[in-house]
């Protein structure tokens, strides 16, 4: 026998289900007005420094079907790579938004400020990226991934450099389609499967 550790286990995750919108984006679900102010509607407000960009994409399941019910949360630093909660952050950047697929087409758009590179505890610099947490019916625990940008220098990024199958890094790169616009599709399973993290 040994001493007993007094650490606790995390509560088990459960799927967000098909009606997640009621709780997280009530206006989208048809419950507009239940709250005076809904949260997560934008990562930034007027006056935020940096370039406004638009990222468009879909979430695709293992059958190749574009999901109409998928949603994700985005979390990112400001244009200088400072996260909300850290000293010196742009007061007009909340860094966090909820993004839903269009119920008809399945396409989503994230309009945001292009984040700067950020610095980790160990002083290593991360290339500009947006953290993504995908939840939906059929996803039992939220899937973590990241959007990087194909017009940035990603060569020194400590996370991307850990990906052994180099060709899969491409699944994390938003492709510039025109000035200020990018394309990023999330593939949950199968060919071109997006890299998901446990971090």
């Amino acid at each position: 026998m040994t001493q007993k550790l007094d650490t606790l286990q995390e509560t088990a995750s459960q799927t967000a289900g098909p009606f997640v919108h009621i709780g997280m984006v009530p206006t989208y679900a048809g419950l507009g007005g239940i709250y005076e102010e809904e949260i997560g509607t934008s990562t930034f407000s007027d006056g935020a420094k940096g370039d406004v960009i638009e990222i468009t994409g879909t979430i695709i399941d293992g059958a190749g079907f574009v999901m109409r019910d998928g949603m994700f949360e985005a979390w990112q630093a400001d244009a200088n790579g400072i996260y909300p909660g850290q000293d010196g952050v742009d007061p007009n950047v909340s860094g966090w938004a909820r993004v839903c697929a269009d119920p008809e087409s399945g396409e989503w758009t994230l309009r945001t400020i292009k984040p700067g590179s950020s610095v980790n505890r160990d002083g290593k610099e991360q290339a500009p990226h947006i953290a993504i947490w995908v939840v939906a019916r059929g996803i039992n625990i939220g899937l973590q991934t990241r959007i990087y940008f194909d017009d940035e220098d990603n060569s020194g990024d400590p996370v991307l450099s850990r990906i052994e199958h180099k060709h899969r890094i491409d699944t994390l790169l938003a492709k510039k389609t025109e000035d200020g616009k990018y394309r990023f599709d999330i593939r949950l399973q199968g060919e071109g499967e997006t890299v998901f993290f446990d971090m």
């Binding site: 293992g62 899969r168 949950l188 199968g190 998901f196």
Partner: peptide
Amino acid sequence: TSVTRSPNFPLLAM
């Protein structure tokens, strides 16, 4: 629904 919405590859842990 989890059958087509679960990644085949292991999560990359770090």
